[in-house]
Amino acid sequence: MPETALPKSWNKESKPHKFCPGCGQALALKILGQAIDELDIQKKMIYATDIGCSLLSWSMFNVDTIQTHHGRTLPLSVGFKKAKPEAIVVSFTGDGGGYAIGAQHLLNTAMRNDPITVILINNANYAMTGGQLAPTTLLNQKTTTAPKGRELAQGKPFKGPEMLAQITSEDAHIARGISTNYQQLLEMYKKAISNQIEGRGFSFVEVIAMCPVNWHTDAQQSLDFAEIEMAKIYPIGELKCPQK
């Protein structure tokens, strides 16, 4: 067997993983695996994952893992961290889990500056259930529940990091990355997790991710929609970085 290209912290037993071909969420998880490797935290951390496509990552890593209910990953993580402050807690959720069904948890966790790291996938739709309208769906973007495209009456695309930057303390780390920029996202992850390790408090990285199956796009179109269309509405960068 040749040596693989998988991150060391990926659980080889569960590979190939169950994400769709070309999935940006899987890519975000590959880069997270790299961050776990580089920070050498595999045995000191827990990984908590939501429902939605994120549930497919329940055995992604060789890391102690808990799969929770939809939207409830953050409270579980907060409870774990409170009970075991020396553990590093990484919570993984989608835009449904974080910005809709569990929005109150994200808001309050951020407000309390709970010392956990939250990674949220923004793929502009609810992918697991087949591509419905999400808080992050772009205006005019078609989904199965917005067949004519999202109208303003259905709300403006939701900007999570911008909101969190407003309500968090100066110790919080808030950033938006994109799964197609490997080095940049890797650095964002490492800074976010370090913010927790160093005891400053809450850290959050939203990750723009492709969803070719529900977007009905080929490889090039997927990259264009994520890197051009989505990035226009959701600017990539660090909104709050206490480590600077």
């Binding site: 409830r72 409270p75 907060v78 409170k82 553990a87 948890h105 309050n108």
Partner: peptide, 26 residues
């Protein structure tokens, strides 16, 4: 003794579960 006043009962339930997973009688 640790205490967490959460934002709602769903959060209270799941935070309790988080603590239990860490091996704490919550």
């Amino acid at each position: 003794l640790k205490f967490l006043q959460t934002e709602d009962e769903m959060s209270a339930g799941f935070a309790m579960i988080g603590a239990i997973l860490a091996g704490v009688k919550a």
